[in-house]
Design a protein around this nucleic acid. Structure first.
Length: 603
RNA sequence: GGGGCUGUAGCUCAGUUGGAUAGAGCGACGGUUUCCUAAACCGUAGGUCGUGGGUUCAAGUCCCGCCAGCCCCGCCA
């Protein structure tokens, strides 16, 4: 539909120029006319597109909106290209122009997609002449070393992955970076503790398991808080580590390796690809950041700490609040690392990644931090004109009580447990259904279906909500068989696969496509919207738009399936409907794939 | 005190950047199976879009005030 709207846009602009010559315009009407106000129809009964500019124009040029609309229509109907695509337009309400794309054009669009891997979605056009303007970095997941992944990492991981998939599909060269917390003062206590309780592990790997490592972290923390001697040793250990002491570095690497292995298990289950590039990667650039800011006169000294002061950043007293770049003890903090990361990521190769767009998928609590860091980077001229740097914030995961999701005993929920529970419930659902339906399935089938459904449910539940608001986690809802859920979408695909099994092998021919039922046309129109939806997600970074689309598509398919015979239909309707099924399946599969959700033939 | 986000049907949420009578799903109530998986489909009920102003042909959407909830605000990330 995107290509059609582009053509219509052109026709309409030409019509407006004819109907309202430039010389007759004042500044305001010229402004209104510079935008055609061509938008998708707000309701199916209004056709495919609507033009709203007559209303906006009426007062300015003192002609009733209905007459304006008439003038526009008259011009449009002189346009051969327009007539080829649209039925005669009509005026509705106070002066809206409704456009309906004719059936022949829709059929042509459909048949073009039947043999097209990209299903009619054109790759994005990038800025010409700017090297790597198509390179984007998606920074997501980012757990902390020596800790277990918990529910707090869920949203970043799932949303980030989906955005990366969409951007890849659009034609971006995507670098998926896992900015893990692998540096900082907490390593002092961890290494000190490790050296004392398990000195033997320093020489061999694979001894400490992460389950233990979580306990291990707790033990170290307790000792750090309670034991003064331990605290001092830990502080020394930080210095050792930072100065590159071999033993300390070994201990650090061991801890990182152990964590990495455990993270990978989760990523494998979720089918998520990430390149680890932790905070420590930027250590060697930190000094340069300070130097650079200093040279640009952006640094001020405040109580021994080196800071940047932004006018828009106000503190408790209403005065501008400094952002600390280097602590009074000479150490660096997260703002420094994030600045170094921005600079490195935007600097051209070989001294950086040379990206044209940076995307940070973190919780909304960090909004002001990123806003500050981005502003500093801008002041320091590290963000080239054509680059986009975006924070993609998301809300909390809440329990059904509306509070932050916790276990009954009040502890943070481990991500592993969450995944296991979803799969377990999906399995219970499936087995009880098999029983009532008297179906006999193999264990491997049951395992595969429940794993797919369980993981899909968790991912889809998260992605289908507008990420900005908090999200209420409910196993019951996400695994529900009705409504905007993963199982509902998966089921639509299963139905189509069922048709194919029962002899519905369609012949892909662009000839003889014939459609006569409203259910068919509704499905066709929805199928053709795919490209617009993907473009929208690419621009606004909101995967829930894609979910909403896939749900609507599934609904329209289910209605079609329910109300229109397919296998029993006569030719050429039978083959036309089979092709519609096949295109629906391809569209759903592509969409699910962009969400990071695998599909099934049977469930 | 300053800043950010949120507030839409009983519940969970959409709302395509200002368009026509505000939409889904769940839950409630009623209906549909000689037929491709009924994990579906069809119908009914349900709204002062937190609130008060403003901007204009037109506001859930933009601006200002207020109310409520959550989050952030110097040496943690």
């Amino acid at each position: 539909m995107f290509s059609i709207s582009t053509i219509l846009e052109k026709s309409l602009q030409a019509a407006l120029n004819e109907a309202f010559p430039t010389k007759e315009r004042n500044s305001k009407s010229a402004l209104i006319l510079s935008n055609t106000h061509l938008i998708p129809a707000s309701k199916p009964e209004f056709g495919d597109f609507q033009i709203n500019c007559a209303l906006a124009l009426a007062k300015e040029i003192k002609i009733p909106p209905h007459q304006i609309a008439k003038k526009i229509i008259d011009q449009l109907q002189k346009d051969v290209e327009f007539l080829r695509i649209c039925n005669p337009p009509n005026i509705a309400g106070p002066g809206f122009i409704n456009l309906t794309v004719n059936s022949q054009t829709l059929i042509t669009e459909i048949s073009n997609r039947l043999n097209d891997e990209r299903l009619g979605v054109a790759p994005k056009e990038f800025i010409k002449g700017v090297e790597n303007s198509n390179r984007v970095i998606v920074d997501f997941s980012s757990p902390n070393i020596a800790k277990e992944m918990h529910v707090g990492h869920l949203r970043s991981t799932i949303i980030g992955d989906s955005l990366a998939r969409v951007l890849e599909f659009c034609g971006y060269e995507v670098l998926r970076l896992n900015h893990v917390g692998d540096w900082g003062t907490q390593f002092g206590m961890l290494i000190t503790h490790l050296k004392e309780v398990a000195p033997q592990t320093l020489n061999k790997e694979d001894v400490v398991e992460i389950g233990d490592l979580v306990n291990f972290y707790r033990e170290a923390k307790t000792r750090f808080d309670e034991n003064k001697d331990f605290k001092n040793k830990s502080r020394n250990e930080v210095v050792n580590l930072q100065s590159g002491n071999k033993n300390s570095l070994n201990a650090w690497k061991l801890l990182c390796n152990q964590s990495r292995k455990e993270f990978q298990k989760i990523y494998d289950r979720l089918d998520i690809e990430l390149i680890e590039r932790g905070e420590s990667f930027y250590n060697k650039f930190l000094i340069n950041i300070i130097e650079d800011l200093k040279n640009k006169n952006l640094l001020v000294n405040d109580q021994g700490a080196k800071c940047v002061v932004l006018k828009s950043f106000l503190g408790k007293d209403g005065k501008p609040q400094p952002i600390i770049i280097q602590k009074s003890d000479g150490g660096f903090n997260y703002a420094t690392t994030d600045l170094a990361a921005i600079k490195y990521r935007l600097t051209k190769s070989p001294n950086g990644d040379g990206a044209g767009r940076l995307i940070y998928v973190t919780d909304a609590g960090q909004s002001s931090h990123f806003s500050g860091v981005f502003q500093i980077a801008k002041c320091a001229n590290w963000i080239p004109e054509y680059c986009r740097v975006e924070h993609v914030p998301f809300g909390l995961v809440q329990g059904e009580d509306g509070k932050k999701l916790k276990t009954r005993s009040g502890e943070t929920i481990r991500l592993v447990d969450l995944l296991n529970e979803a799969v377990k419930r999906a399995k219970q659902d499936l087995t009880s259904r098999l029983k009532t339906e008297d179906r006999d399935e193999s264990n491997s089938f049951i395992e595969k279906v429940s794993t797919t459904v369980g993981i899909a449910a968790i991912k889809y539940a998260d992605l289908s909500q507008n990420r900005v608001s908090n999200y209420q986690f409910s196993f019951e809802k996400m695994l529900s068989l009705q409504g905007n859920t993963a199982p509902y979408l998966l089921y639509a695909l299963v139905r189509i696969a069922g048709i194919a099994r029962k002899g519905g092998k369609s012949e892909v021919s662009n000839q003889n496509l014939i459609f006569k039922e409203i259910q068919e046309w509704a499905l066709i129109r929805k199928l053709l919207q795919l490209d617009c939806v993907i473009a929208e997600v690419e621009e606004e970074l909101l995967p829930n738009r894609l979910c909403g689309y896939l749900f609507e598509l599934s609904q329209l398919f289910n209605r079609f399936y329910d109300q229109v015979p397919i296998l029993k239909a006569d030719e050429p309707s039978r083959n036309s409907r089979l092709l519609l099924c096949s295109l629906t399946a391809d569209t759903l599969k592509l969409g699910m794939n962009l969400l990071g959700i695998p599909t099934l033939d049977r469930m």
